[in-house]
Amino acid sequence: MPRAGPAGVTVSLAQPRAERRRRASWALFAYLRPQEPVPRRVYLGTVTGSAVGLVALWCLLSYGGVVEPLFLPSPTAIIAAGLDLARDGTLVQDMRASLAVIVTGWALAAVLAVPIGILMGSFKVVEALVEPVIDFVRYLPVSAMIPLLILYVGIGTAEKVAVIFIGTFFQLVLLVADVAAHVPHEQLDVSYTLGASPAQVVGRVLLPATLPGVMDTLRITMGWAWTYLIVAEIVSADRGLGYLILNSMRGLFTDRIFVGLVVIGGLGLAFDLTFKWLHRRLLPWSPKA
């Protein structure tokens, strides 16, 4: 193709613009296609934009006087209330109370539910033994059992730990059982052909194979535990983050309610990130790590 002459110059000038337009429309098309990856820059930009937009909207509504402080306190009001609560020690006390309850209840559930779940998912006999009970109980809302729990163990810490335990235990058993049941059968078969006994297959193949799934399950149920904690504390408590929220409502301290929410969200996020970090650290081989 001849490139010299005025025609060539026109082409070389016109082409980049057309090219850019073509690319831009292609990019737009790609962003709108399901499951298509987007450039990291675009992704991070959108994330930042979303967060900044939310805060901006909040500022507009609160500082702009669009919504009354009773319903939506301003960011500075919430920070001030948070500092106040931190200074007099109640925030730390409430956090500590809630964390103690949540970790105890959830850990008790995990310690019992993981082995039971693995047995249930691996051995049909155990499944037949356990499933009817669990399938029934797991549809009972934990909140419906709170009156009974109060009757049994009173309104102290034990009741709240029990709420978390019941809320997470039955779900955990089923989720872990599902993880164990989905260990590829051929991985067990191949172990037998390598000379493993049934006990060795359980100990050396089945158990390690369930680890990533169990890790994920523990992370997810920890999230649920927060929900149950607040339910338990709103019903009866004299400290804790749920109590903080409820008590603030009684005095119409909306800013304190928001402090409680932000702290719960922050703790939840911290737990989630810790679990993900542990997953990468402890199970570097896991496809999810």
């Binding site: 590829p184 991985q187 078969d189 191949v190 193949v205 194979a209 199970l283 896991s286």
Partner: peptide
């Protein structure tokens, strides 16, 4: 089953850990 008969499957059966 026994170690005297080794088997290779179509699906990937390596132990990921």
């Amino acid at each position: 089953p026994g170690a005297d008969r080794g088997m290779v499957f179509q699906s990937y059966t390596l132990f990921p850990w």
